[in-house]
Design a protein around this nucleic acid. Structure first.
Lengths: 231, 231
DNA sequence: TTTTATAAAAATGTAGATATTTTTATAAAA
DNA sequence: TTTTATAAAAATATCTACATTTTTATAAAA
């Protein structure tokens, strides 16, 4: 065997699951779209069995809805759902942050500082789309560095499921954000303040700061949704 | 059409999902057991396709683990996982409780008082097994009445997933609890205190009370797991 | 023992059969 | 004409049976 030892064999259902999930969050399939079996089978070059497996998993993750004998649809989006997802996510992230600060630890702090630095180095030297993906992945890494200090795998798992559910809304926000220097600068400042609170050890304040940071995108996303006629 | 209007047709995968989930939480299939395709197909009288669908959903819910080309197993149990699940669940339930108290509302309060009363009326007049199921369902209803006041469907959804994951551990605790008059009385008292805090409107205190209430079962369950040689 | 070869068991996938829903066409009633 | 109801046709979802691939168990050879 070559490679790293983390070789994970995967079956067709796994592959289709990953691809369809990406296609949904990237908007190839739009909210409410019917996910026609024949179309999916053609697109992912796969039989109906594995395809249904992939769909079932996405139903469990709330990205797809199923109606028995009537097939599958991309889960719809709405402003109500945006608010609920972002609120729940902010509460959860704030809780996790408070726990992480209380637990502290040198390597946790070091991880945050490193991630914050890496993030701050993403500037306009990159091509637009490249810049977007890079900022996004480093921003995610930054927040994960903070959350990972909470010490509870299950809480991190819950956090991950909320992240998945927020992803389609987040992508809308991301494009507004990354292509506006002022917005980027504002975020940079927010992150500075956040890191200060985290390292100060004041867990309650850090919690509050994180909550607000997580709620900030809601108005911008609401705006975009309205423009697209989603209510 | 007859019936209530909530007629939900379901396909074979749905049926197998519900039955297998029950069989796992009730211990028909034990932690770590191989879930042999041929055995499952025979038991639920179903083809491999729908069976795999049901299994996939349970994998997403963490009750089953999958290894590609090597089939499925019942997720193992451990004291570490017990601690993590109960901690995460307690934190989440405490958070939800705090929000519910802040949001308040007359019908929310009324719902709690009603549920508490109904629960307190489950006494030894029932046959043992009947008593167990009755107390369990009313206890769940009581806690749901509290949580439902938080106003966030997504937080309630997260709560539900944690409940599912805790269920196998909870069942162990339930038998110890329900068949001991002292333990039952202690719980009754805990609930009284909890309701007091909830209705007093002191959200921070209510939160703390709920956290402790949720953490209480851990030592008892740890004991039982040790007796069964699970570490 | 360790390795290699072989056979049995099991998981996974496809194709086609079956059942259900949706659409379309047609006719009756308003 | 417009609406409503009905029936046939098409599209679609679902399921099973069988074929293929992979893993595991067993035994022979080094």
């Amino acid at each position: 065997m070559t490679g790293t030892g983390t070789e994970e064999k995967s079956n067709l259902a796994d592959i289709a699951y990953v691809q369809l999930k990406r296609d949904i969050t990237e908007g190839v399939f739009r909210p409410g779209d019917k996910l026609l079996m024949s179309a999916l089978r053609e697109r992912y070059d796969i039989g109906a069995g594995p395809m249904r497996e992939a769909l079932s998993r996405l139903v469990a993750e709330r990205l797809v809805t199923a109606a028995s004998q009537r097939g599958f649809r991309v889960a719809t989006m709405s402003i109500d759902e945006l608010r609920d997802i972002y609120f729940a996510r902010a509460q959860l992230e704030a809780l996790i942050t408070e726990l992480a600060v209380q637990k502290g630890g040198d390597s946790w702090e070091a991880g945050i500082i490193a991630a914050a630095h890496t993030l701050s180095r993403v500037t306009e030297i990159h091509a637009p789309e490249e810049m977007l993906t890079l900022w996004d992945s480093r921003h995610k890494a930054f927040h994960l560095a903070i959350a990972s200090g909470c010490g509870s795998p299950k809480l991190l798992e819950l956090r991950e499921t909320m992240l998945d559910q927020a992803e389609r809304y987040r992508q809308l926000w991301l494009r507004e954000m990354v292509f506006s220097s002022e917005a980027l600068e504002r975020k940079r400042e927010e992150h500075r303040v956040l890191v200060d609170k985290l390292l100060s050890g004041k867990s309650t304040e850090a919690r509050q700061e994180m909550f607000e940071h997580m709620m900030n995108p809601i108005p911008i996303i609401t705006e975009i949704l309205c423009q697209r006629g989603i209510r």
